[in-house]
Structure formats: C-alpha cells, structure tokens
Design a protein around this nucleic acid. Structure first.
Lengths: 234, 234
DNA sequence: CGCCAGGTTGATTTCGCTCAAGCAATGTGG
DNA sequence: CCACATTGCTTGAGCGAAATCAACCTGGCG
C-alpha cells in the first residue's frame, strides 16, 4: 500500500502537509510504507540520506554515538512527525542515527519527490526550516538543562513533557505511560541507568509519583510541576 | 555608511552572499552599520526580531538564561557570520540573546529586505537552512559532549577548535589567543569559573599547554589532540 | 529448566560545585 | 597622589551528586 498523505495525525506535521499540498502530483505510489521492529535501525550515523521519513505509528528514537562509542538518545519522534529531512535537504550524511523504539510503521518518501516539491513550492522549504528551528530550540534547552539542572529535575521535566497530553489542567490524579524503557529514559536525560533507578526511588519515596512498570501515577501534578523548577531559594 | 555587501571575509557567510546576489536590488542604504561595546546587548531573549545581523568585526556571543537566572554562553559568532536569522525567518521571538563580547561592528539588514530576498529567490532560504543545519549539528555535539566528556576534555576540544586556523598540520609549537575571558570560556563549556582555573592549572602542570593571559602556547599539538579524545581504555 | 536483558540495590570513589578567601590589575573619586 | 572599590582570576577546604564497580533480583522466553 502506498498513499501520499497519511491520515491526519494529532501532531504537527506541517512539512508533510506542505508536501502533500503541492509536491505530490500523482498521490499514489510516491510514498513507501515500511515496517520496523523494536531496536531495528532505520538509518545510521554517516549514511547518506535516501528519503524523508514520517512515523505513521509506533515510536522512533534519534540516537548519536560519540568517539568513545558512548551512545545517547537525543529525542523521540512520535506518530505524525517527520524525520531525516535535515540530511536530505542539505545533501550531507546523517549526523545522527534513527531507530525504531517500538514496532513502527514508517512512511518513506523518495528523495527525488521531496526535492521536486521543494523546488516547486517555496513554502515547503520554509516549513522544514520552521521544523528545524523548533528542533534547534529544543536542543539548546537540552544543553542548558544538562548543565544547570540536577538529574532529578531533568527527569521530572521529562515526566511533565510525557504527560503533556494527559495533563488535564484541572486535575489531581494524572496517569501516564512511559513510552520507552528506563535505560532509554536514562539515556535521554544523560545519566546512567543505576542513577535513573535511584532517582525514581527517591521520587516515589517523596510521594511525587508512583511507578509500576511503564505506568506512572502522579497524585498531584501541580506539586510535581513546582518541584520540576528546581530547588527554590526563598 | 551603508553598503549592502560587506567586504568578503574569510569565513562562510553563504546566506549573506545569497542575499547580496539577489535580494538587494539597490545595493545602497539597505544595511545599517552599527557599533557595540564589549558586554553591550544586541538583542535579548524574548525580543521580536527586527532584522538580520552580520558581524563585520569583533566578536558576538549567543547567550541563554534558564528559569533560575543561570546564564550560559551557547556559541560565538565570528566576523563574516550572520546571526539572528532564525527568529526573523520563523517570525517567533528570539529564543536566545546576542551580545557583543568584543568591540564590534555589526551590519544590520532590515526584516523587509530579507523577507523580500527570501521570497524572490528560493536559494536564499536554502542557504539559511544549511546554516541552521550546521548550527543544529553543533548543538547536538554539545549535548553529547557535556554529558559524556569531562570538563578537562571539553576544554581541550575547545582549545583545538580555537586553534583550528592556527593549526599547521605539520607542527609542533602552536600559538593561539583566547577570544574571550576565562569566565566566558567556562560558561561556554558549562563549568564554574573556579573549575576552569583548576583545569587550566592541571593542563599546565601536565605540560600540555602554557597560559599567559589570553595567550596559549601548545608545545605538542598532536599530544593535545590525543588527550582531547578522552581517557582511552587500551 | 536455564539463560539473559532489564532493572534494582549497595559500597565506594571521583569529579565538579559551593563557600570563602586572597590577589593583581584597573578604575575612581577626593 | 593615595584610599578605595571593582572586576577577573586563582587557590583552598569541604561537600555532594552522580559515576563506577559489583551483586542480585525479576520476568520473559528459548
């Protein structure tokens, strides 16, 4: 099966939408649907770009390994979001790797189609620029956080980010589900998995949240939000 | 005085060049030359973009402050490089602040001119995208480094980055000059200035480099490069 | 059943931060 | 010109957060 435009997802995929609006003339057979198992790599650091990817379902992780072989999870790509555009549009090898974190259906758009769409409609390029700008802002925040905030605070903030959709502003008693393993969460905030365990332990002992497998119960989201701001002086 | 195209600098300013090639029809009076003293802010985090900036001479620092008021130097902008384009092109407030680190001459191009240039020539947008992609790659590297590498290693790598131009591949006995104060260097690698002092002390004691004010002598650049890879197992 | 990956826990160490003081260079006002 | 503050940098002592090393548990799954 191959349709150019996936069913509209809940998340921002302005780039893909722009592509569909203009770039895909015959809407059939231009995008290829692929399937990945958890842990399966989609592309590696250093590979040349072969196309543009969009997560239809599942979850994708963007990884980077440094010289010492240390690997780190930089960010998650959720259903409806595109990835791999940077390398494709600049014509440089991938600076990061992508891998499926859950079983995932990925839509892949050939490079030629994307290039044509970009050439035909300037708005497409702008859409990708905006997307990159947002990713960049997040990367900058991450730098700041890793330098200034304790791992406890970083984890609390990540919890809030995960709970973003489940967070009924009203409410006490938020429940959410961790999208990835604890190892991956540790990697995401840049700590060892042992430290991750301990941090979770402390947070449970404080009564900020209760963890069972990947399920998290947050009795008082407001309190957790306050704690996530770091230790306040006065 | 106001000329559209600055004298060609040694560094990459593909965006500015693209602008000059197409966007600036009457080449006079479109860019404004401004002057900043060390420490003087160029724009603040949260400000709306008013134009595009290009460093003609001097040095500019991109800063970010987090919720707790902690400030950090994210990167340097050297002569010939443009900055402030992200906020301008996305139409969002500046996510970072810019300030002169040395006495600087800054060329400022009004928003309208840039927007027109972008609309007229798709290549301009692509040039900015490339620039952003490069900045993003650096930000990702920075995240990895701050998490995985010790502050000693991070500093050594920064030294190498500074010495990039002075580094005659041949050579023993490289000399270079620190572009900014030690406080700013500390902020750049995400450590306290006290720690910075100690790290420099250790590096001197090891004979890796000698520091006098802002002057640095590196007797054996090759050895420093090896050390900058981190502690190797075998 | 035995194996193994993911996770937890404990003991110990290390790296970098905090707090505090001191010092040299520069400025500033009387 | 000197007394004084200010700023950038260095040094010391002590502490604390997170890494490291090392078991050990647990639940799948062949």
């Amino acid at each position: 099966m191959a349709t150019a435009c996936p069913p509209r997802h809940q998340f921002e995929d302005a780039e893909w939408a722009a592509l569909c609006a203009n770039g895909a003339p015959g809407k059939e057979a231009v995008s290829r649907a692929r399937h990945f198992l958890p842990g399966e790599p989609i592309y590696h650091e250093g590979d040349a770009a072969t196309g543009l990817y969009c997560v239809a379902s599942g979850l994708v992780g963007i990884r980077k390994v440094d010289a010492d072989g240390e690997s780190m999870l930089l960010r998650l790509v959720r259903p409806g979001q595109t990835f791999g555009y940077r390398s494709l549009l600049t014509g440089t090898p991938h600076g990061v790797g992508a891998e499926a974190l859950k079983e995932s259906r990925i839509r892949q758009l050939p490079a030629a189609v994307v290039h044509k769409a970009v050439a035909d409609d300037p708005a497409v390029m702008l859409a990708f620029f905006r997307r990159l700008a947002r990713d960049m802002a997040e990367a900058e925040n991450k730098v700041m956080e890793t330098v200034t905030a304790s791992c406890r605070v970083r984890f609390l903030r990540l919890l809030l980010a995960f709970g973003g959709d489940a967070d009924d502003g009203m409410g006490r008693g938020v429940h959410l589900e961790l999208p990835v393993s604890r190892q991956d969460i540790a990697s995401l905030i840049g700590v060892r998995s042992e430290t991750m365990s301990r941090v979770i332990r402390v947070i449970e002992d404080e009564g900020l949240a209760r963890f069972k497998g990947r399920h998290v119960d947050i009795p008082d989201a407001r309190r957790l939000a306050v704690e996530s701001l770091g230790v306040l002086a006065d």
